[in-house]
Design a protein around this nucleic acid. Sequence first.
DNA 1: ATTTATCCATTCATCCATGAATACCAGCCC
DNA 2: GGGCTGGTATTCATGGATGAATGGATAAAT
Lengths: 298, 298
Amino acid sequence: MDKSLSSLDWTLVRAFLAVADTGSLSGAARRLGGSQPTLGRQIRQLETALGQALFHRRPKGLALTENGRALLPGAQKMQAAMHEIELTAAGRETGLSGPVRITASESVSLSILPPILAKLRLEAPGISIDLVPSDSTENLLFREADIALRMYRPRQLELVARHLGDIRLGIYASRAYLDRAGRPETALDLFDHPIIGYDRNEEIIRELQSRGFPATREWFAFRCDSHTVNWELVRAGCGIGFGQAGVAQADPEIEEIPIDVNLPVLPVWLATHQALRHSPRIAMVWDALAEGMAPHLV
Amino acid sequence: MDKSLSSLDWTLVRAFLAVADTGSLSGAARRLGGSQPTLGRQIRQLETALGQALFHRRPKGLALTENGRALLPGAQKMQAAMHEIELTAAGRETGLSGPVRITASESVSLSILPPILAKLRLEAPGISIDLVPSDSTENLLFREADIALRMYRPRQLELVARHLGDIRLGIYASRAYLDRAGRPETALDLFDHPIIGYDRNEEIIRELQSRGFPATREWFAFRCDSHTVNWELVRAGCGIGFGQAGVAQADPEIEEIPIDVNLPVLPVWLATHQALRHSPRIAMVWDALAEGMAPHLV
DNA sequence: ATTTATCCATTCATCCATGAATACCAGCCC
DNA sequence: GGGCTGGTATTCATGGATGAATGGATAAAT
């Protein structure tokens, strides 16, 4: 009746988007850090304010109605504008304190970053670090992370990326295993040993095939897509596997198998949103990462 | 510290925009229908969340800082998206009930619309009418009104407008005045009488001048920019003035002065946002206005 | 058939955001 | 200087939004 005067609360639109995205009140509540009853009320409030139903209440959750779908583009524009605001605000932040969110691959997060980040904390105690181990590619755009450390060249627009160098890969096994099963000396010898490889990681399998390995799922004696677990299998003496040179050299249990099979290298890229690049805080972490990674790269 | 997780409340951006626009917390509070302490808190909250000052606290109010100005474009995009949402939602509304906001010139609102709207209410009791007497030109875009009745051709994009016809203008005085001061018979005679005209309404003055009247502020014996008050001066017998034929003919106190001086006509336009045009509610009011205005037009 | 895991609606005590009231400050006009 | 009219900041009682808990319903899994 008279609610059209004070327009509608912008928070309701955010709730609408979250529910439309996740398809459920509970999911939206989790995403927004709220509670399911609150989300339910907000959606109902929005619907009565607009005088139309936006969702079908299904047993599995809430599904958009026609009317609801019509509002989606506008709501998304709103969200995009909100992101823009957050980005420019963060980019103009001065001072060396505040949170910085880093995303990096699981293995790098585990084996390389901790000492680097520890040193950084000593130099800039005001900076707090969120580390998100993940290989998902799209999380820089929506500011799920401020800085990404990736093993491939990021290609999104609006990102600034720098190639730090490459991580050398090698063939490794545990000393105990080699003592027991013997040390292969030629590439052919490798086939007498169990190989620790990957399951569904198409990328790595294809790379190996293109270099002459008969790499199929069946060829591997052990299969695990997680790089870190994979490496633990090597350390436990399950067989012969592939690993990062830096990680391997720091491990006294591990011995390199000196066969030249022309393995690829892993390119290491640093990336951030261009709006953030010159924020002092971000720049400091950026530099620390670039410097700290250097010893691990060729 | 950890507030960057749950992002920031979208309501704060609305508060930010309102304060930036109005230049004061109190002004923003008035616009948003809130209170000044609330606005103050919201701005402070936004500033601490972003870690930067957005406004200079001046004795006269709040002025944007550099950082604040940088956020303005994003905030405006957000507002625009919000308007889009409201428009599409309103455009998809079905059913013949709900509020419709009409804006029309003061004089038309006063003398012509009431009976039309009364009849409309009888036909569609579910529709409630907000009537905003105003000549401000820009209020359709931001949805301050759903339908505008204007005395000129609206030229905004995204608007659909229709020319209903023209209102004839004439020269009038009260019967009492003419009995007392005599009835002018030629255009020259007019100069012996006090003329009721306009003060700062450049448009009307220029129009009169282009038709051969020596219309300057000084030429008028009475000056008042409000059409309605201007007309009341005529009715009170202050002298000779200009008025709308329809209004004058309905008034037994008023007598037309039959001198042909080639007065202009007032074009009458109906306009609404194109997204609303086919909403049943809006369409109904639109038709009622078009039909109701017809007898007053030539 | 039973169990489990979803999800939504409802209730109710809690607590936080809200706004009326107030104090206070800086210009401005007389 | 005194009164007036804008403003902002602060306080404090209150009401409304919030979320934990609960109930109920449906689909998938055992």
